[in-house]
């Protein structure tokens, strides 16, 4: 019996001692920051689904693959599971002019990087105002706003999206209205989008965002920040 126990102990200790816990290091770096309008210093609002991306490539391999990171709706981003090392990083395919590729070393621990860029266009929340209108037996929400354009290309489309979720946008909405625009616009010119309130619940607060899409390949919408209103209690001039 003693022998058996002894041999069992030897066997177990052999098995245990021959293993290492893990031969790969865990991610040791955190990478975060925001995409910022270099003129105003504000973050640039994004879409949650189909929004702008950060492409990054971890160097030190042959043919490294492009990895991708997405922005939050408010224009910030965060990846807490990165490996420290040399990277090429570029925010791309978004609603801004892509900056030059950054060659950076991501250190162990926290790494904050803000990208200062020029958005394709800007819709300031202070320029947005809403009205309610009774027309042909239906209630309509009218949104007046201004688009400050930084591109030489046309504005392709304007869009108003409405939802109970503050991440409201291109893909997250209960109702939306898209209007083809296809021309340049003047920053002082007030533009109008309207949407019927049919199907929306009275007495509920909704989030609304207004966006403009630049006519550039793979461009994403430029949005204002989400505005919370009860559309049925808007002023009716």
């Amino acid at each position: 019996m003693k022998h058996k126990i002894l041999s069992l102990i030897i066997l177990i200790s052999l098995i245990v001692s021959s293993c290492e816990l893990d031969n790969y290091d865990a991610p040791d770096a955190k990478f975060f920051g925001a995409i910022i309008d270099k003129e105003t210093g504000d973050t640039i609002p994004q879409d949650l689904i189909d929004g702008s991306k950060i492409d990054y490539i971890e160097l030190g391999y042959k043919n490294p693959q492009i990895q991708q990171l997405r922005f939050h709706v408010d224009g910030t981003f965060r990846n807490d599971l990165m490996f420290s090392g040399d990277y090429k990083i570029i925010p791309t395919r978004g609603n801004f002019f892509s900056p030059d590729t950054l060659n950076v070393y991501i250190n162990k621990g926290e790494n904050k990087i803000d990208f200062l860029v020029t958005p394709y266009c800007t819709i300031k929340n202070e320029d947005v105002r809403f009205e309610l209108k009774d027309y042909k037996g239906k209630l309509w929400l009218l949104a007046y706003f201004k688009v400050i354009q930084h591109t030489t290309e046309n504005i392709k489309e304007l869009m108003l999206a409405i939802d109970e979720n503050p991440n409201v946008g291109l893909r997250i909405n209960t109702k939306y209205f898209k209007r083809p625009f296809k021309k340049m616009t003047d920053p002082d010119k007030e533009l109008l989008l309207y949407i019927s309130l049919e199907g929306l619940k009275e007495g509920t607060k909704y989030y609304i965002r207004i966006g403009a899409l630049a006519d550039i390949p793979e461009a994403r919408y430029n949005w204002c920040k989400a505005i919370r209103v009860d559309p049925f209690s808007l002023p009716q001039p």
Partner: peptide, 13 residues
């Protein structure tokens, strides 16, 4: 298999 066939990937992948 981009990392072994050395090809240029299609957009956005």
């Amino acid at each position: 298999g981009i990392s072994s066939n050395n090809l240029i990937q299609n957009p956005q992948y």
